[in-house]
Design a binder for these strands. Structure first.
Lengths: 166, 166
DNA sequence: GCGCTTGGGAAATAATATTGCGCAGCCGCT
DNA sequence: AGCGGCTGCGCAATATTATTTCCCAAGCGC
């Protein structure tokens, strides 16, 4: 963990920018308790180090017409590394697949997919995913409703953890 | 779908800000082909309408010490609405649970969790999740590696879809 | 104590956001 | 066709903000 190179101010900066990525630098500086120039330098450094990967607007996918969200559990015939990479590459090229994670256990991959409607997803499922070579099984689960969706890091847990170590 | 009230410029704005949420307004205006003032007005309107929910910095959770990511499939004893809501409320209060989605099928909920290490997750699992009233079964899957993680909307699919309708 | 390194702050400058205003195009109506 | 009224754009002026530059203070090894 590289977090030890970060002092409390850096962590505050990360937490604030995770919560509001468009906060102005002066506002950010005020909140973390330093003046604007060093604050901006810290932000730039965090970006350089890759601790901040980027900034994104969170758009309402439902309002935009993507009303269906599906988790797909995928099992492959062969788990050879070449086959795993090949499947991952396919996932990266499918726009409806927003996330792809390799898992342990009986299932090889979990995919989070979006689609405008059920039939769009069905056609993706039968036309793309199921016809992919080496795909042995796919179990899908429709998202009925979302209760929590906060990608990112729980900074309160991090702080608590560091205070115990220190 | 409210997307019909949005013209091509609005959708371009959303796409650009999803890709880079800290783009300056002048740069954004240049890319979508209008001048800065109307561009900013459009952005404000999109925020008002809730199409833009917010802006967030994407932080590297692994570098920050959250090296473990786990999907947990949760089944409940009772699926009465009160019980469902109660479980969702608990999830919202667990910092290690970053996402909680209600599913159809045999499993009631899928949770995406993060943790500093395996033992932290284990203690959350045995100490919190498994001891929660009404929780009947929990199956967990460790994420071995991530192949794609791009929350958001595939705007290329949206454009293609709208052009077919138009 | 001395010089080095590591941040922080003040002030100046450059860039950007934001507001106000006028103009052109597009209906719907007569 | 001609006439408001509406909508959205762009220009110009102003207010904020970002960014650079320079200088200062604290910590540290010698």
């Amino acid at each position: 963990m590289v977090a030890h190179r970060l002092d409390e101010i850096d962590r505050k900066i990360l937490a604030e920018l995770q919560a509001d990525g468009r906060m102005t630098n002066v506002e950010l500086a005020k909140r973390v308790g330093i003046s604007a120039p060093p604050c901006l330098r810290r932000v730039r450094a965090l970006e350089e180090q890759g601790l901040i990967r980027g900034y994104h607007a969170e758009v309402d996918s439902r309002q935009l017409g993507f009303e269906v969200q599906v988790f797909a559990m995928v099992g492959l015939e062969s788990q050879a590394e070449v086959e795993l990479s090949a499947f991952e590459a396919r996932c990266r090229n499918w726009p409806l697949v927003r996330e792809c994670h390799m898992l342990n256990g009986e299932v090889d991959f979990i995919l989070k997919c979006v689609a405008p409607d059920l039939s769009s997803f069905q056609s993706f499922l039968t036309g793309q995913l199921l016809t992919t070579p080496n795909v042995a099984s796919v179990k899908t689960s429709l998202v009925i409703r979302g209760a929590k969706d906060e990608p990112g890091v729980p900074f309160d847990v991090l702080e608590e953890r560091l205070s115990r170590t220190a």
